[in-house]
Design a protein around this nucleic acid. Structure first.
Lengths: 205, 205, 205, 205
DNA sequence: TATGAATGAGGATTCATTCAT
DNA sequence: CATGAATGAATCCTCATTCAT
């Protein structure tokens, strides 16, 4: 597992990525200048262009790599052939844990989509869709197995992911709840919401 | 003489508000220039400053007024003394309906918070908190009445509001689902998630 | 001596003059905006244009009126046929006293000349020249009478007026010296400087 | 290899200084725009900011450097231990000569003080005070030696410096008087004014 | 790779002035 | 006379980007 020879070199690109990530998360892509990023890295603005051809490429790099890493992390956790209810728990816990550990990446992934040029936007959307497919598949498998009751798997997927991802907007380390407690609370919400239960009072159709 | 009092001619401020709302929603506060807003209104940039002293004040005006209008709209719908389950349905349907009708206000209210200067941020946060209190109170009343099972009303409030508000990020008029169907689907998710049901596999550990 | 009928009305013009005088003196003509002047007067910017057609006219009004008032004040003090040495003292004391009482007018009269458009500049310069003529005449009369020794009356006039006027740049009421003491000190400097005395070491070479 | 150390190519900063000096002297700091300066230098406005962080810094640079150069120039001329009357002549001639050669720097040094922000103003005032100290020391030494009669050395210093510096406000090369003649005239005025002579008629009363 | 200086465009805001009311 | 809203131009300064060194 030794680092491949030749990877020794300048880690400037990585330091640029980290500075940009942090600044974009705090102030937003449009509000952050290349000068600010350069200052954070400790380099002159021109030097950034040795590593990323444009500011837009820097944003795309961050968003695409985040989605790729997210998907790869899930794949490392997923257990093939697992029962849908166990898979839903695994996914829920994974999603919360991962999103609480990468709040900056998560934040800009949801906030800066509109600042991507169309081509880059599409690339990220394809990856996002691939990630959503994971949950949709679990929901559909659970419904097929009679474990879950899900009317619109795609809609439900988005509703649940919005709910789970939302945790990052208010969670702060050191708050009254541990990450484990948060996981449990959200898991309960998720599980119940896809399990046949009391029909809501007004329920139309 | 039928002119309503206070409507003294120039509605430029209102047109500025609308142009800014639409542009901020599409491109983000930081990415929109006062020039662009002025052009949309059909006025010279300097004229904007007769109505809003700074760009920041324009943003604050939009966010504060949105939150005030949201709260006022709920108060016009709320039924005092209603049973918690009926109130939950009323709130859920109201929230979705309102948020599907004001997608731009909703969007910037969640996206541009970080672009508010601290004082303005606090003002908006107080209003947001007041709105969340509505749902928290319903959940607590329902739990007290034995209708709901809610472990952390504050956390659950945020989780549900994130889920419900998220609808605006993907809903597009003319899509396969009507607003009424969407209301029903989300209502089911919400209701189940706060109703005692099957314990999730992993339990509370 | 009753005020002529019809002069009762709005003193806005006078309040504008005073606000402009004070602001120009403190910050300079170019650095003061019509808005600032209007704010000081307690009026909207547009209202200024009912009294002065342009900002430039306001400056010209202040400078021209200052020079006219200065000359008129001297004429009220001057004693026809007075001996040159007594006249020099009278002039010196008058100049210092007047300039210590109108520091703002004096200041802008020397500072803002270059901000006058050519026509207005010429008008002020003619008045300034008329005032300088007073001292020049005294010096020339004194030289003719053998009381003074003055090589270049015009140059000397300017040197002495620069010296005397300079008092306003450092005098502050409440300082260690009274106005009377200052008058005396400067009078001594002036008198000696035009009186035949010890030849300076380096002579005329 | 003959390039003097430190002369690494771009002398833009110096050209900016010179353009700003000339423009400030002619029109006043507040009335000159960075665009005008840039145009005079032959560069885009933004380029100025590679050399001076703000317009204010440019002004401060000019005033501080002028005062430093003035003091250094005097120090290069001063003769330690010289008799006070000779020193007064040396100082007077030096001051006039220097001020006639640097009319622009002198002019803005007296005109633009009020446009300095407090911190910068204080820095310049300290230097000005240091320069005044030179003349004050000469006057005091001369008074102690019985050569001069000076009532208030500090006040007299300011009066004489105002007189001497004022020469720049009317002197134009090519006029009827040579610089040497002007030096002589002013030297006579200065010398007499600090030398015991005829008491002015009105005395001290 | 990195620097420092430059460009050309555009940022928010302010300006003197005008004018209908 | 005064207001309030508007104009059109200008303000200082910052931007992403380029490029010779």
């Amino acid at each position: 597992m030794a680092r491949p020879a030749g990877t020794k070199g300048s880690d400037t690109a990585e330091r640029v990525r980290r500075a940009a990530l942090s600044l974009f998360a705090r102030h937003g892509y449009a509000a952050v200048s290349m000068r600010q990023i350069a200052a954070e890295v400790g380099v002159q603005p021109g030097a950034l262009y040795n590593h990323f051809p444009t500011k837009q490429d820097l944003l795309k790099d961050l968003l695409v790599n985040h989605m790729r890493a997210l998907i790869a992390a899930w794949q490392a956790q997923a257990v093939a052939g697992e029962a849908p209810d166990a898979a839903l728990e695994r996914f829920t816990r994974f999603h919360i844990r991962y999103h609480l550990e990468r709040t900056e990446e998560v934040f800009i992934s949801y906030m800066e989509l509109r600042n991507l040029e169309p081509e880059n936007f599409d690339a990220v959307e394809r990856l996002r869709r691939a990630y959503e497919d994971v949950l949709t598949a679990i929901l559909e498998a659970g419904a097929a197995a009679g474990l879950f009751e899900v009317r619109q798997p795609r809609v439900t997927t988005r509703a649940l992911i919005a709910m789970l991802t939302g945790v990052g907007t208010w969670y702060r380390p050191g708050g009254p709840l541990s990450k484990a407690e948060i996981e449990d609370i959200y898991l309960t919400l998720v599980t119940r919401s896809v399990t046949a239960g009391p029909t809501p009072p007004g329920g139309t159709d």
